[in-house]
Write a protein that binds this DNA or RNA. Structure first.
Lengths: 238, 238
DNA sequence: GTCTTCATGTCGGAT
DNA sequence: ATCCGACGTGAAGAC
């Protein structure tokens, strides 16, 4: 049964003990209250006082969430060390990362709530509709790309990176397929073009290498780039 | 002062009332307990029962966090409608999005904790060390790029997109600068190349357009691509 | 570790 | 609304 430690309007000492207990026992902790946040590492940031929800995960993750946006306003990734502390009577949460060296400091002016949760979760997310699923569909039914297409390899390595699907067409030409699960812009065309160029150099001179972008749709700019590069497009939903 | 509503081991009815109150009053709510999650929209997913922290923001965001990873295992973006409900005696949280149509359902088998927080936060994050800061440094001191460089425009539009910095060198050649705040791979080279090509077509024939990638460093593959495309690299930390 | 690419990417700004 | 690119992108897989 999921265990819950909770403290409303905790004294800083109380919050400290709760977070230290959480860390010792591998709990998921949350703090809510008025705080300032500073970050320094790959970039630097400061955040003036405001009410935020801070989440501490046993894997070292820190999330600082405001009342809006999906993304945290500040964070630390897994692998960081939580360093809760009292200073001048206030509760501080520090988080340190090495390689790259990055520090996050959350200084609470007021703590409204602190909790620690014992979370057990063995389940894996089962996700479908990814690019890998789109690839499998084409491998199962190559004619979705075009009649006569024969897949030869997936993730085939080239000097420019791995090709999603590598195959041949009914004329024996090499076909490079780049898959995207959603509408694509210019970047995907550049990616496909790199693969086609790389394979054109690799294969014996004279071999024709076709590049086919597979996606639900393309933007105008991307379509223009495809034409300039002599590349093709096939529309497929993921 | 930040207000806190909280309920340990709430009955489903209690949790429903708390979340409904939170929604009415624009509160940030959290739920912790054993739940299953299904998502259907741009992709689809299912998640077997486990203990998770669910965060509901007044802007419509939903986050489902497990005890590990920085990213939520499931989520809905801002703008969605929270739809808490009781069904067969269990607490359900549904979230609906339109355009694209996406649904998230969290079904709680057991609720260990529910909270609602009144969060007021007017502060904006002050972030430095971004690409915009790197650009300003070059505008302030163009010789960081090379002696004689003269910036003429930022975000100059081309058919292929906006150029970070557009300028001229000491010989009067056009210079296209693409900035990256971190080590770059092949993608950034493709981006720069698109701009150079687009400007080469735009400008009168015979004009030389140089492309310069500015970043802390480049990968080997990217360096090779730069050479193939006749593009240049200048190392600058953000 | 580095490199490369995917992502239900998210987010902001411009058109 | 779509398009485009930045992001302290994060996360996974390959090497």
């Amino acid at each position: 049964m999921a265990e819950v430690l909770t403290a409303v309007d905790p004294e800083p000492e109380e919050a400290l003990e709760l977070v230290e207990t959480g860390e010792r026992r591998g709990l998921l902790c949350t703090l809510f209250g008025r705080c300032r946040v500073t970050y320094d590492g790959r970039a630097s940031s400061t955040l003036a006082p405001g009410d935020r929800l801070v989440v501490l995960k046993p894997d070292g993750t820190v999330l600082v969430h405001t009342d809006e946006n999906q993304q945290p306003v500040n964070w630390q990734p897994p692998g960081c060390t939580h360093e809760p502390a009292l200073e001048d009577g206030a509760f501080f949460l520090r988080s340190r990362r090495t390689s790259p060296d990055e520090r996050l400091v959350v200084r609470f002016e007021h703590l409204a709530h602190a909790t620690a949760y014992n979370a057990t979760d063995a389940a894996d997310l089962a996700l479908s509709g990814t690019e890998a699923d789109l690839r499998q569909r084409i491998l199962d039914e190559p004619s979705l790309l075009e009649a006569g297409f024969e897949p030869r390899a997936t993730e085939r390595e080239t000097p420019a990176g791995a090709v999603d699907i590598y195959g041949t067409d009914s004329d024996g030409n090499v076909v490079v397929v780049e898959l995207k699960r959603r509408r694509v812009g210019p970047d995907a065309v550049g990616q496909l073009n790199r693969y086609v160029e790389a394979l054109g150099r690799d294969l014996h001179a004279g071999a024709t290498v076709r590049g086919v972008l597979v996606a639900p749709s393309v933007t105008d700019t991307a379509r223009r780039l495809l034409e300039e590069r002599g590349l093709e497009f096939v529309s497929l939903e993921p």
